[in-house]
Measured scan of single mutants.
Amino acid sequence: MDLSALRVEEVQNVINAMQKILECPICLELIKEPVSTKCDHIFCKFCMLKLLNQKKGPSQCPLCKNDITKRSLQESTRFSQLVEELLKIICAFQLDTGLEYANSYNFAKKENNSPEHLKDEVSIIQSMGYRNRAKRLLQSEPENPSLQETSLSVQLSNLGTVRTLRTKQRIQPQKTSVYIELGSDSSEDTVNKATYCSVGDQELLQITPQGTRDEISLDSAKKAACEFSETDVTNTEHHQPSNNDLNTTEKRAAERHPEKYQGSSVSNLHVEPCGTNTHASSLQHENSSLLLTKDRMNVEKAEFCNKSKQPGLARSQHNRWAGSKETCNDRRTPSTEKKVDLNADPLCERKEWNKQKLPCSENPRDTEDVPWITLNSSIQKVNEWFSRSDELLGSDDSHDGESESNAKVADVLDVLNEVDEYSGSSEKIDLLASDPHEALICKSERVHSKSVESNIEDKIFGKTYRKKASLPNLSHVTENLIIGAFVTEPQIIQERPLTNKLKRKRRPTSGL
């Protein structure tokens, strides 16, 4: 017993010596996670971090007073192994002897410093981030199933929210409404489509400006004509009531908005009720001829604005009016007729031209339509002016008669200019590109209106002035400009410049 007691005391002394060697000089306990400095002193990692955080910048070693920084600290694995072995020896000594260790306080702390507990403390002390800490805590505590279930439920809930957000973003663009038309193969669909197009076009005519009305009406008319041609002859009974509906809707729209509806009346003529396609083609032919005449008058307007600064050229074209007008009339009417003589009366030419125009518009179905009313009214106005011209010709002399006839021709041009508003800008460009020769010939008609105004002003003063002067240069210039014009009389060319000069002198006297 005595020997055993001596041996136990010796073992205890050895353990105490080893414990003092492996103590931390700051906390005076076994080193936890030993860290060595540049001066080869060993301290606990937790104690050194606490010391360095007390001051900004480098701190001093507690043993040798040298500078220490966080970067200079290094882990010493050898001392950590020695500490672990010492703890194992102490545990074995207690089991063999059955005696508690003399320094129970220190031993209890040593026992608490088992490797499992050290790992837990290291995970908390090290600044490795929240995710690494959570992982280490889960690994160190596998015995708690409640914690695992809560963490898994949190992760699953987070994943569910992310997935639901993604699915919502994908589903939202798919919620856009999609309209699908289910059509049938019955023959009544074509008639319904035609009526739908006509009503939609009328609404567009009321909303859209004048520049786009003609294009819309032309497209709708083409669509309706194609649909009529596709149907068989057996379905004509269905077409006639639908066309009557079209007429009623167009008349109502014309009564409500007459000014807006006139812009599309000329282009919509071939959508009118037709028994066969031949009647629609004839109407299209007549409309094309009318559009040609209207576009020519538009060309004359532009030329008149350009040549208004040259009064000499405008005056020299006075007698070329009849010849150029004959050529335009021959090209406007498709019928083959002989040219009228140069010395014939211009009023007779106008009456013949009106007689040619009237039969074209005397179809029984055309008179029933609303768009032809505008053309009939313009023709009636022309006839009224010609009836007035006959009365004026009986009273005035030959020279005054010529000037009045020219004035009436200008009035006719004004009437025809009203129809110019109905034609589109695209048709003007096509006419100029296809028929430049006709445009040059028809330019002379509009330029002549300037000389007509001068004659009217001469009649106000009650006299006409003449001068025997020749202007050969002007006649040559005008002959080169206009290709299809005829030779003019030299006496009238000489008379016109004198009248304008005298007018300039006598205007201030009349004002006084």
Results as ranks from 00 to 15, higher is better:
N16M: 15
M128I: 10
K38R: 15
T97V: 04
C47S: 01
L3N: 15
K20H: 03
N144G: 08
V8M: 14
L156V: 04
S4G: 10
K88T: 05
Q54R: 11
L182K: 02
Q19R: 12
V122E: 04
L182C: 04
V14S: 09
N103C: 11
A108T: 13
D185L: 08
I42M: 15
I125L: 13
H41E: 01
Q81M: 08
L152H: 06
Y105L: 12
V11T: 08
Y105I: 08
F79K: 00
V162F: 05
L49G: 04
L118F: 12
N112Y: 14
P142A: 03
A108E: 10
Q174P: 14
T167V: 11
F93W: 00
T176A: 06
L137T: 11
K110V: 03
L28H: 08
N132G: 09
L99T: 05
N113H: 05
Q126C: 12
M48R: 01
Q148F: 05
N103T: 07
E111F: 07
G129C: 10
T77S: 10
T164A: 15
K88S: 14
L82F: 02
L30A: 03
E111R: 08
V83G: 08
A225T: 15
H117Q: 01
S76Q: 09
S177C: 00
L82S: 00
C47P: 00
P142N: 15
Q169M: 02
D40W: 10
I124H: 13
N144S: 06
S127N: 01
E111W: 01
L159Y: 09
Q172E: 09
N113W: 02
Q54D: 15
Y179S: 11
R163K: 09
Y101H: 03
S80K: 12
N103H: 01
L147S: 06
G57P: 08
T69E: 00
L49R: 11
G98S: 07
Q169L: 14
N113F: 02
T161C: 12
V11P: 01
V11H: 02
E75T: 05
I171Q: 05
G183P: 10
T150I: 08
T164H: 04
V14T: 00
S177F: 09
E29S: 14
K168R: 06
V8L: 15
I171W: 01
L28R: 14
F107G: 06
N144E: 10
Q60P: 04
N132E: 06
T37K: 00
F93G: 00
L49A: 01
P115L: 07
M128V: 07
I68A: 07
T77H: 14
T190Q: 08
Q155C: 09
Y105E: 06
Q60W: 14
V154S: 09
P58Q: 13
S127T: 02
N112A: 13
L22V: 03
A5S: 07
E100M: 07
S177D: 08
A134P: 14
K70G: 13
R7L: 12
K175A: 08
N16E: 14
D2F: 01
L159F: 03
G160Y: 03
N112W: 07
K135F: 08
S127M: 04
Q169A: 07
L63R: 14
V191Y: 05
L3G: 09
K38H: 12
V14P: 00
L147Y: 04
V122C: 01
K20W: 08
T190V: 08
Q139N: 07
L138D: 06
R136W: 15
M48V: 04
A5N: 11
H41G: 02
P25W: 02
I68L: 12
P173A: 11
A102G: 08
R71E: 15
K38S: 11
M48A: 12
Q60F: 00
V11E: 00
I21E: 00
Q174W: 04
G98K: 07
R78D: 00
E181A: 03
A134F: 08
K135E: 10
L165D: 06
D189R: 04
Q60K: 14
A253V: 14
T69R: 06
A108P: 09
A5E: 10
K32M: 02
A102V: 07
A5C: 11
T37R: 01
L137R: 07
K88V: 09
V154C: 02
S151C: 07
A108S: 10
V83M: 05
K56W: 10
R133N: 13
E141G: 08
P145M: 07
T167N: 05
F93V: 04
K110D: 08
N132Q: 15
R163M: 02
L165P: 12
E33S: 13
L118E: 07
L165W: 02
G160P: 09
S157W: 13
I42K: 13
G98D: 02
Q174D: 01
R131H: 02
Y130H: 08
L99I: 03
Q148N: 14
A134T: 04
L156N: 15
F46Q: 06
R133H: 13
E29G: 10
V14A: 05
I68W: 03
T167D: 14
C47I: 00
D67E: 11
C44A: 02
D185K: 10
Y105P: 13
R131K: 14
E181H: 14
E33L: 11
V35R: 02
G129S: 10
N112M: 15
T150C: 14
R166T: 07
D2R: 10
G183M: 08
T37D: 04
T164E: 03
Q19D: 15
I90R: 07
V122T: 09
P115D: 14
S140Q: 09
I89E: 00
Q19N: 12
S127L: 05
T176E: 10
Q169V: 07
C61L: 00
L182G: 05
V154G: 07
F93K: 08
R166Q: 05
N158F: 06
C44W: 01
Q19G: 08
C44L: 01
K65L: 08
N66F: 03
E111P: 13
E84V: 10
K175P: 08
N113C: 05
P142V: 08
N103V: 11
E181I: 06
P145E: 07
P142I: 03
I125Q: 07
I42E: 01
L99H: 14
K56S: 13
S127R: 12
G129T: 11
P34L: 05
M128K: 05
L30K: 02
R170A: 09
V11R: 00
T167H: 08
V14G: 04
Q126H: 01
I89V: 05
S186N: 12
K88L: 14
R78I: 13
I125R: 09
I15Q: 00
L95A: 06
N106F: 06
C39N: 00
L73Q: 01
Q148D: 05
I124P: 11
K70I: 01
D245L: 15
L30M: 05
A5P: 02
T176I: 05
L28A: 14
N132S: 07
S153T: 08
R163H: 08
K55T: 08
K65Y: 00
R136D: 13
S186K: 04
K55N: 13
L30T: 13
Q155P: 05
R170F: 11
S153F: 03
Q126K: 12
I171F: 05
R133T: 03
E188Q: 08
I125M: 05
S184F: 07
E149A: 08
N103D: 15
Q94A: 13
I21R: 02
I15L: 01
E85K: 10
S146T: 10
A5H: 01
S140Y: 04
L52I: 06
V122I: 15
I124T: 09
L52S: 09
I68E: 01
E29K: 14
N144L: 11
V154L: 12
I124N: 15
S72E: 14
D189G: 06
P145N: 07
L137N: 04
I125V: 06
V162H: 06
I42G: 02
S123N: 15
F93P: 00
T37A: 08
C47T: 01
R71A: 07
M18P: 00
